[in-house]
Nucleic acid binder design. Structure first.
Lengths: 338, 338
DNA sequence: CTTGGCACTCACGACAGGCGAGTGCCAACA
DNA sequence: TGTTGGCACTCGCCTGTCGTGAGTGCCAAG
């Protein structure tokens, strides 16, 4: 087991390396942190830490840098989440309060997160699967053409065109709209299929085809939108990555463009509490030199989606975690109010 | 005036430089293009072209590279838009045909454009100012809380919450919804303000406050959405930029994150026909080493929005222009159908 | 277990020399 | 007048050498 002081040395190495981006040596360490021991002692500790795989040297006769395993230990045992200062909290709140609709909330959140952490921010739209239906609207575009609009309790709006097998009268339309809403409004998405199952039967035979078509479009929309949407921002912060720049940044940008990858990334995170995935802990290869800090957020106690940031493994974990947590909290509040 | 052959030399320089990314010398030129003259002659021509400011040398005793002015001449006089091949056209069409709604059309367009040109793609959402209202929907969320949903002819949906000064009955709601739609449905956005001006007067005094609030929210939405939304993609293609990478890419990424900048960029482009802005022709400083190829697209003859790509000044102009034009054309078709 | 001392390693920057692509100029030629 | 080959010159880039210094590992003494 590692002694108290060795953990202290590891903490110091992480902090210095995050600050300077340069391998940190024994002498510099003792100078910048009052550890009360000499460089030689620190060297012994470093040897032990390296033995255990927490730190490594890029090349002989250079200082040490933390490994993924080292960061892991740092995050789990040595670091506390750094709470936001009062002014920061106020800034977050007022920035988010000015949002006009859901799209705007998400857009502002992503900008905010990118700015606070100076990293790449990812925000998932509130998930439809856990949401409930607020309203379903049907409009006639043409005699045999309808538009279906679905509104969720989180304020999300989806619309689809429906081509009907036969013309559909205004009365039938109003009828369908009313019945549909009385059945599904306020219900969970997952419950909708059963709730509308027998609806076609209650219509005149000439309208049944259209009703079925509308329903299947509705159900399709639910399924399709289960693969949820997300927004990213702050990609210019990638330029802060390091010197070995082009090689690292390329796969990261590519991964960030693949929504699927990001969704999987967020999906792997715990549903509650904050998740930190460091370097090779990320399944996707392009993100092997990045860390992902993510957390669920939601309007009530329940998380409806996730948000987080992607940055170099060499990041300020306490600060980043603090920012992510604070933003998630406030977004949850905003959603609850709307 | 420049002789025919000198223009030919310029064209050859542009083509070679775009291909190799390296300054091109007189000898290499005569080898790769059968100009029918010797390197010495080409050198004379190059001296003349440099004199006129069309090409430059990065340093003495290196080959020449085109200047912004050189690219300008190339685009205006020497290059033809390269049409897409038949298979490419089919690929474009089938890819876009699978889109399910407007968001999807835009998302697919941006991916397609990025892939075809291997550059950064920018697609503006169909503009609301030139669009017409298809339908306005009002829903009661609570006795004194409404949701306003605006649907445009391009399939765009916007929604807002409205807090009413007084409770608003279901009958009044249906009434307002009906009157509102009968006035504005099918009308241009710009006409809406006059059309609804006198609407509050026709309601009971107790409801007038609410009606006014609803109307002002509606008008606000129009104004707000005049600053139009856009989507970008293919940022990972920025890594192809060149060797002097980090310095160039940073401001570009920053500019791309600022929607305002991009909107201004697209706004500066001609309304009809293709616009190419090369290097310093772009007002925004961060984009001084990029070129922007943009074109309007729309469902009918009229352009409702723009799309384009951002890439290094050293880009394949004919190919890029061909791709941009083709994509714009097909997107227009898709919008017309929906 | 800690400490100072010491020899060793090795990345990095500076400097020098050689190579070669490319240029400008000039004199000769059609 | 325009084109061509020849030629000297420039200068970026690559390579190799060398000195410097930060950092290490090991060891013997406290």
């Amino acid at each position: 087991m590692l002694s108290e002081r060795r953990l202290e040395v590891l903490r110091a190495i992480v902090q210095d390396y995050v600050g300077t981006e340069e391998p940190v040596g024994s002498k510099a360490l003792t100078e910048r942190h009052h550890l009360g021991v000499s460089p030689a002692t620190v060297r012994n500790d470093m040897a032990a830490l390296e033995e255990e795989g927490f730190i490594a040297q890029p090349h002989t006769s250079a200082g040490r840098i933390p490994t993924d395993k080292g960061y892991r230990l740092f995050v789990d045992k040595l670091a506390d989440v750094k709470p936001m200062t009062a002014p920061e909290r106020r800034a977050i709140q007022s920035f988010l309060d000015h949002a006009v609709d859901l799209d705007d909330v998400v857009a502002r959140t992503v900008r905010l997160l990118a700015q606070l952490t100076r990293q790449v921010a990812v925000v998932q739209y509130p998930s439809l699967t856990r949401s409930t239906v607020r309203h379903v609207e049907l409009l006639a575009l043409a005699p045999a053409r309808l538009m279906l609009v679905l509104i969720t309790d989180t304020g999300r709006v989806e619309q689809r065109h429906v081509d009907c097998p036969a013309p559909f009268g205004e009365t039938s339309l109003a009828d369908l709209r009313a019945r549909l809403n009385s059945r599904v409004a306020g219900r969970r998405f997952t419950d909708v299929p059963q709730l509308v199952q027998d609806l076609p039967e209650s219509f005149e035979s000439e309208d049944r085809g259209t009703v079925s078509t509308v329903l299947s479009t509705l159900l399709e929309t639910l399924v399709e939108e289960t693969e949820e949407r997300l927004v990213i921002g702050g990609t210019s912060n990638l330029t802060r990555f390091g010197h070995d720049f082009p090689l690292v940044i390329r796969p990261v940008l590519e991964a960030l463009e693949e929504q699927v990858v990001l969704l999987k990334l967020l999906g792997e995170a715990k549903d509650s509490g904050m998740t930190v995935r460091i370097g090779h802990e990320n399944a996707h290869e392009g993100l092997n030199s990045t860390s992902v800090v993510s957390v669920g957020y939601g309007s009530g106690g329940e998380a409806v989606a996730k948000l987080g940031v992607v940055g170099p493994t060499r990041m300020d974990y306490p600060g980043t975690m603090g920012a992510v947590r604070a933003v998630a909290r406030y977004v949850g509040q905003i959603l609850a109010e709307s």
